[in-house]
Design a binder for these strands. Structure first.
Lengths: 341, 341
DNA sequence: CTGAAAGCGCTAACAA
DNA sequence: TTGTTAGCGCTTTCAG
């Protein structure tokens, strides 16, 4: 019940509490013999330091906050898991701040995490702090790392979404497709990091590079879900053959998979009648044979945690923006277009 | 920037620190005038209590730990999100302990969360503590609530997995199916809570109740993924017509969706050639028109958090086991079997 | 290398 | 209703 205190360990080991503290925290100024005696006493009593007392005295919590707008989406859970495991291995706890609720909840998070001094640092996943929030970060003086987009003023791990999208679309143009549908939303579906806008931009660039004019009627908005992709693809693929795109590029794999379902339901075969590609390489993409531009959010989580830990431990702020890798993975959903007869 | 301390607020408000503490924590023994003055002073200075100091002095952390073996699976993120939101609304933080790593990581979690006194209580999602861990729970004297299965010695929110499975399978027998395939794994795929075994048991009961002998060749193991369901369904549905099941019941919607894909790939139409049903009602089930027995993990998370909060605040331990609701949702993937000619 | 002692910032008796 | 005071359990100077 009453937790074992440092004093009890000190008594059993026959040293002062200060020495126990030093021995257990790995302070080099302790003789081996003493250190061992302390460890033995601690083990015997089952002593573990009280994090609150330790934090209060030292100013370090060994706890990191992760702020994210979603928990039930692939990207976010991947990042979260990578970060959490890395932190736990380093002896840090992870406190979760889910800000799906919007601004006032965000405020509350800042109160909790930062001002209450619950955390040593913060990882913001796809959350773009506003000016006030940024100012708060700095005024509190705690490290913050962004993931999922560039944030002015804080070191972040970002994707080059334009390049990613351009690569995926260029794969289709390189195969010889010229009438390419795009599913992904424009400004209407914009998020903190303008991901939809950037991915659309990449698509446009690939088209221009291939000397193809973008037909705005073939670019449809959608909400990044399977269902949204399905509905949009039905519109694109339901048209008569000479208007129908020979390929569809979707700004996310979930929408691409929805598009694949739509193609099937319309009796079109993939990739003979229509090629489909996406972005992400999420859990089910390999199963569906979807060609995609992969990103690696789990690794992003790991890296974010590592950067934060090193910042905390060395005091050196990581470089401003680190662009994360992506890779084209060609599977069975894309092929050359069948020449029209 | 040194954080604002309670002493500064006290000075500005012209009262003692004790009064500030009382006023801010909602202690009734404070005059309205004083309370208001304190709040004004606190707002003006931007004061927020230091959680460490508060925890150390009061013994309460206002932090709850959530232990879960997975982060990237529907059920777990649903529970987590429900719990996290509920806790945040109540002013509690949520610290995440992901124990996918296995036993030694679990040990570490117990060290961190419990012994370091980081949390006031714990929510264990689909984690069955072993005897040592249970003993530790009790010895630490912190409330723990289980979700996802009954845990002897811990109040838990459980599903009646046998009943759920029986209901789903009975839907198929009631439609007139007699040759029903089962995908879900037996003991080989068993988890902490024997979910596969229980769901298989429910299937068997429904069959017996309908007077149908279970054909073991039609019961296949799978790993609860879409892909696993796909592979298993291919085996079942690839057989000649007179041996082929007219319906498939899968122990999870993901496997059921895999089975739907397999049926399509084999050129079988759903539900004419084969009916398919699952369990869960996960994100994509409605989109695929999958008949399923729904459960509500988000609500389970909310309820777990509420129960824990009330336990923390009133000291009354919730009842041992609360069985959570489920419901049959009939969609377009099931129908009467077409009579053989 | 080790110990004594002064806090870290707050809460909770206890008095008044 | 409010103030005084004694810790909560640890870390960290400062001496030695």
């Amino acid at each position: 019940m009453a937790a074992v205190s440092i004093a009890q360990v000190a008594e059993l080991a026959g040293v002062s509490t200060a020495t126990v503290s030093r021995a257990l925290s790995g302070n080099p100024n302790v003789s081996d013999a003493t250190r061992q005696a302390v460890h033995e006493a601690a083990d015997q009593l089952g002593y573990v330091v009280s994090s609150n007392a330790s934090s209060l005295a030292s100013g370090r919590t060994r706890n990191v906050g992760v702020i994210t707008p979603f928990l039930d989406r692939w990207y976010f859970t991947q990042v979260l898991e990578g970060a959490q495991i890395t932190l736990l291995e380093a002896g840090y706890d992870t406190t979760l701040y889910n800000v799906s609720g919007g601004t006032e909840l965000r405020e509350q998070v800042f109160e909790h995490a930062l001002k209450r001094q619950r955390v040593d640092g913060l990882i913001a996943v796809a959350v773009e702090p506003n000016e006030r929030e940024l100012a708060r970060f700095h005024s509190i003086g705690r490290p913050v790392i962004g993931v999922g987009g560039k944030v002015a003023g804080i070191p972040s791990l970002a994707l080059d979404d334009v390049a990613i999208s351009q690569l995926g679309a260029a794969h289709l143009t390189a195969l010889g497709h010229r009438r390419i549908g795009y599913i992904g939303g424009g400004p209407d579906y914009d998020t903190d990091f303008h991901l939809p806008v950037q991915r659309y931009e990449g698509f446009v660039r690939a088209m221009h590079e291939a000397g193809i004019a973008v037909d705005p009627r073939l670019a449809l908005g959608a909400d990044f879900t399977i269902e949204g992709g399905y509905d949009a693809a039905k519109q694109l693929l339901g048209q008569p053959v000479h208007l129908r795109p020979t390929a569809i590029f979707a700004a996310s794999d979930e929408m691409a998979i929805g598009a694949m379902m739509a193609a099937r339901d319309l009796g079109l075969s993939i990739p003979n009648d229509v090629s489909i590609a996406g972005i992400d390489d999420f859990t089910q993409s390999a199963f569906f044979g979807l060609t995609t531009v992969a990103q690696y959010p789990h690794d992003q989580g790991i890296l974010a945690a590592r950067n934060l830990l090193s910042w905390l431990e060395t005091g050196n702020e990581p470089s401003a923006v680190t662009t994360q890798p992506h890779r084209l993975i060609v599977r069975s959903s894309t092929a050359r277009p069948v020449p029209e007869l």
